[in-house]
Design a protein around this nucleic acid. Sequence first.
DNA 1: TTGGTTCGTCACAAGGTCGTCACCTTCGCG
DNA 2: CGCGAAGGTGACGACCTTGTGACGAACCAA
Lengths: 230, 230
Amino acid sequence: MARILVVEDETDIQEILEYNLKRDGHDVVLTGTARDGLRHARERRPDLVLLDLMLPDGSGTELCKTLRQDAATRGVRVVMLTAKGEEIDRVIGFELGADDYIVKPFSVRELLLRVQAVLRRVSTGESGETTQFGTLRVDRGAHRVWVNGQEVELTALEFKLLLTLHDRRNRVQTRDALLSDVWKIDADVTTRTVDTHVKRLREKLGAAGIYVQTVRGVGYRFAERPDEVA
Amino acid sequence: MARILVVEDETDIQEILEYNLKRDGHDVVLTGTARDGLRHARERRPDLVLLDLMLPDGSGTELCKTLRQDAATRGVRVVMLTAKGEEIDRVIGFELGADDYIVKPFSVRELLLRVQAVLRRVSTGESGETTQFGTLRVDRGAHRVWVNGQEVELTALEFKLLLTLHDRRNRVQTRDALLSDVWKIDADVTTRTVDTHVKRLREKLGAAGIYVQTVRGVGYRFAERPDEVA
DNA sequence: TTGGTTCGTCACAAGGTCGTCACCTTCGCG
DNA sequence: CGCGAAGGTGACGACCTTGTGACGAACCAA
């Protein structure tokens, strides 16, 4: 189905990834170091690299950056794996050019779904960096947002909130889910905080604010139109 | 909030789990053997199974595998409980498709957080969450409903009621069964409340309201045609 | 330090939701 | 047909949820 390179030093995680990815019909190669990872990536040009943030011989972020810049690995998709609490978040991950970002411990299902999603974007030619959604354009890497071509200034938190909603569009997100995905692990905030930031986000998005929909008694949903067909 | 099956032979752990999960608003059933666990899982279709690795009548890994393969328990989430030192089985647990694992002795807080996280993925993770039933289309993830392509706005409670009826379609649900499945655990309401909400649901579903059928003296049934029997 | 920005919380108001009740309609049965 | 019971219906009030503006703490750059 796709060629996937796993760069991860913990052998049990390696095994889990190998077993499940192969079961999903992928062609899997395992490496435990950044050096081997880069070599394999250049030689084999995998479709996707699953990349641990913490590696024995260097950080995964460096490798990620290299993969992005190296001509030999142009077009390779990168999904970062990070342990909870590591000083990186979604936004930083995206700045490095990662296509997605998964926090350990992760559910196997979730991982497979994300991998599928990234691969799907590859095959449909959708860019990993910027996405157009209705009148809204988002550039993850540059951290910029436009509504009808007009740039909108968002704070880091608002941007992250928008990304999270956008990435799970057409799915209701409970306030708790948003809190755990957008806010820091140790953040001690109430669910009402989400409301306030949703309000500010809508405000800044202007006309595109209607994409952020309230599902009363449940949470928020990002969708194009009220009657959109799922 | 969710139906949780605990398969664990140590009674003190059982008690801790039961107490805390119930306090979190979950509906909890306890079993101590793999056999009972499987039976309950098939009958009750819990949202989540908390599964001890070491059971008196067989390993939890076997049960996990069975739960994954059995059509009657499709979609059930599994969280494995393992004693320290059973590290090897951690990998096996993931390979078998467990959604998470927790090492004993665990902090109650951590357990509850993990359970929450896994349950949240249930409602947001799965793809292909829309089902077509006659003229009715339901998207669980987005919390949206269409009748003949026209979106219908349901409240959280109405939506849950519809899902519950739909999931047990062609089978009569007594008012009491609906109350315990749809309403909060501590809800103190009369069975007539169900009637009222069925009425509101039918009203909003319009033409598709005929799917919600009254079985006089018993309860309600969700079916395509009035004479359909399961 | 100072000034500006960002963010979390609060209180309030508007409106939505839900449980109940009284009354009406329908059904099953003789 | 008439009766009683079960279920449908409409209305209402209590409660809950969310949007909103304001405020102060924390942070940061100059």
